[in-house]
Amino acid sequence: MTKLQVAIDLLTTEAALELAGKVAPYVDIIELGTPLIKAEGLSVVTAMKAAFPDKLVFADMKTADTGALEAEMAFKAGADLVTVMGTVDDATIKGAIEAAKKYDRKVVVDTIGVKDRVQRAKEVTAFGVAFVELHAGLDEQALPGYSVQTLIGEGREAKVPFSVAGGVNIDTIKDVVSAGATVAVAGGAIYGAADPAAAAKALKEAISTVTA
């Protein structure tokens, strides 16, 4: 079954832990967004893993260089998954994967900025990443004509383990699951909701009704 990942794009450890506490019963993966890690440092990763040891903690490092070093830093802090940018040199991704093997953790490749996401997804999957995040960032989502359906279609075409991030909500999540996504990533649809717990529960229930 498709896993549900909450992307926490808040800016303090306290706020992140408070939100995670509300939605943890309904999510499989807790993602600590890049702005949060930049604001609080890797201590927020450690705090989240200590608070929710049964959840996968995803450190959205968006590494662009020194793949092995940054991945190891995150894994030592308690991360189960880290991101490396898909636009970088293959050596950076492979270095992060070597660090992941050392700690028995996983690497995810983020495709923000990648021109041909389908081709790149196939390439990096061969290196041994956990899955590829077909991702439209907040800036791209704000552009006229943006649709998450583009990412969903690319996932179907790539035929590799993938997640979708960028417009996943209660109206689109069934399409994400039907496309065969390994993970559905919801950010604003959860943390921006009046009742984040109810929003996460509704998304989880929607996932369970779909057979990919």
Rank of each mutant, 00 (worst) to 15 (best):
T182N: 06
K122H: 13
L4N: 02
S163M: 07
E70G: 12
L19F: 09
I152G: 07
L138C: 04
A7W: 10
D28L: 08
V124R: 03
E157M: 05
E70Q: 14
L143Y: 01
T66A: 15
E70V: 09
N169V: 03
K106Y: 13
T209E: 15
F58I: 05
K76D: 07
D104C: 11
A50S: 15
Q5D: 11
I152Y: 06
Q149F: 10
I30Q: 03
V109F: 11
L143P: 00
G153T: 09
A16T: 06
D60G: 05
V176Q: 00
P196H: 10
E72R: 13
K101I: 06
K3I: 03
V27I: 06
V109P: 15
A165M: 07
A15N: 14
V177K: 00
K159N: 06
A39H: 13
V82F: 05
E70L: 15
S147F: 04
V118I: 11
D9S: 11
S208I: 10
D116W: 04
L19K: 08
M1H: 06
M73H: 11
K76Q: 13
A20V: 00
I173W: 09
A16Q: 01
T66Y: 15
E72F: 15
A91F: 12
L32G: 01
D80N: 14
T34D: 15
F162S: 05
A202N: 08
G113I: 02
V164H: 03
A197Q: 08
G145H: 00
A7K: 03
A39F: 12
A91C: 04
K101E: 13
D65I: 01
K115R: 13
I152D: 00
E31W: 05
A74D: 11
D65L: 12
G41L: 02
A189T: 04
D175F: 00
E154D: 13
V114E: 02
P161G: 01
E140T: 10
K201G: 12
L81R: 02
K159D: 04
A68K: 15
V23H: 09
I97R: 01
E72N: 09
E205K: 14
D139T: 13
E205W: 09
A186M: 04
E157P: 00
Y26P: 00
I30S: 05
S208R: 15
G67Q: 10
V27W: 12
A199K: 04
E157L: 03
F162D: 11
T182M: 11
K62W: 10
D195L: 08
G153R: 02
A96N: 12
V177I: 09
T87K: 05
A206N: 05
A77N: 11
L143I: 03
A59D: 11
T111W: 00
A64I: 15
A20R: 08
K49Y: 09
V185G: 02
A130L: 03
M61P: 03
Y26N: 06
T46D: 12
T111C: 08
K106N: 12
L17Y: 04
M48D: 10
A194F: 13
S208F: 11
P144R: 01
Q119M: 12
V108M: 06
A206G: 09
I190G: 04
G180F: 03
I173Q: 03
T125Q: 04
P161T: 08
